[in-house]
Computed example of a mutant assay.
Amino acid sequence: MNQQEINQILDEMEKKAEKDIEVVFNKRLKAILAQMLEMHRKFGRNGEASWTDVNKYNRFNQEMKLIAQQLNADYKAIIKLIRESEERLYIERYLMMAYLLQQSTDEEMGFKIPSVEMIQAALANPVEFLTLPKVFEAHRNDIIRRLNIEIAQSFQAGESYTDMAIRIENAMGWTRKKAILVARTEGGRIKSQVDLAIEEQASKTARLTKVWMSSLDTRVRKSHRMLDGQKADKDGYFHYGAWKSKAPRLWGVASMDIQCRCHTIYMVNGKLPEYRRGRDYMDDTYQKQLAARIDAYMTDLGLTYRQAFNKAYKQVKPPSVTVPFMSYEEWRKQLSEEE
């Protein structure tokens, strides 16, 4: 196990949460379309409903009120989904990172299963207006307002059900993307909070240094590409211009935090931690060769830290070794029994 593999496992967990959010919005879209189809059937002639008939006896407002109530319940469900996902992310990242660091050193680091209080403190956004209920309250109000406008304009223009459906699908697609963006940003913030907790505990017995690792693709913002490969200062901060942060997504600046896909890579006592059966990844010679190859690829080929790491990792091989091996599952079970 290494940090790249841990990141990949957690990325898959986040994708699962995003798919669950999409399911909620798809169900609501289907229900709203069915509701509008029924209105066209009841009040329409030749496939078109009359605004006069739809608006008579407060019918339109009653239908919009029903949509608002349903969306309110949907957003409550989405908040619950995200919070459950965040809790899983916190626990899994904390334990996997703890296992990796513990098994990569000879020191007992004193890791324990995170308490409920520890997790809740990490989940709480310190900025009041950026908490999930506040953010999604604004999103819910926006989509209700937009649906009211789109549906009313469609009826007033005498559009067919098909034209109205396109309007509704576009509106729901817009709010679905915003919800997934929030989930992605919050998931990243939680992973960074975990890293700080791991760093605090592991630093009691080992020397930890950390490096900023950007994503591979061209969608990486300029500031984060410039941060790529930067080592944190003696106080644990990364620097960009006048700003500083101890981890990705913790700058407190929207342009630096939103939808950031960067990671922190930790080095323990100057070595990149990795633990597998039959291989000594903490061997001094191997670690020096790996570090030198990474630096060379970044300097000579202009690769990002992640690209250089992946390329060097494939080429530099650690020595074989016969030592007792404890799997992550065995280690986690043992940790639970000690609680």
Rank of each mutant, 00 (worst) to 15 (best):
K288A: 11
A247H: 03
E200W: 12
I82E: 00
I294C: 11
W174S: 09
K65Y: 12
I190C: 03
S50W: 04
G236Q: 03
D295E: 11
A124Y: 03
A165P: 13
E150R: 14
L181E: 15
I21W: 09
Q259L: 10
I151Y: 04
Q289I: 03
A122W: 01
V127N: 05
S320A: 15
F325C: 02
A124H: 01
F155K: 09
V116F: 04
F111I: 07
A312I: 00
W251S: 00
P126E: 00
K244N: 03
D53N: 07
L335Y: 14
E108L: 12
R45I: 07
V54L: 11
L130H: 15
E338M: 15
M282H: 07
M36S: 10
K56S: 12
K30W: 15
K317L: 09
F43C: 15
K204S: 07
N269K: 12
I265L: 06
K27T: 10
I166P: 09
I151K: 00
E137S: 02
Q193N: 03
S50H: 01
E22P: 01
K15Y: 04
I91K: 14
T52C: 02
S255P: 09
R221M: 02
C260M: 04
T304Q: 05
K246G: 09
K30M: 12
W331L: 11
S320Y: 11
R184C: 05
I6R: 03
T205Q: 09
D295L: 12
I151P: 01
R261Y: 04
P248E: 01
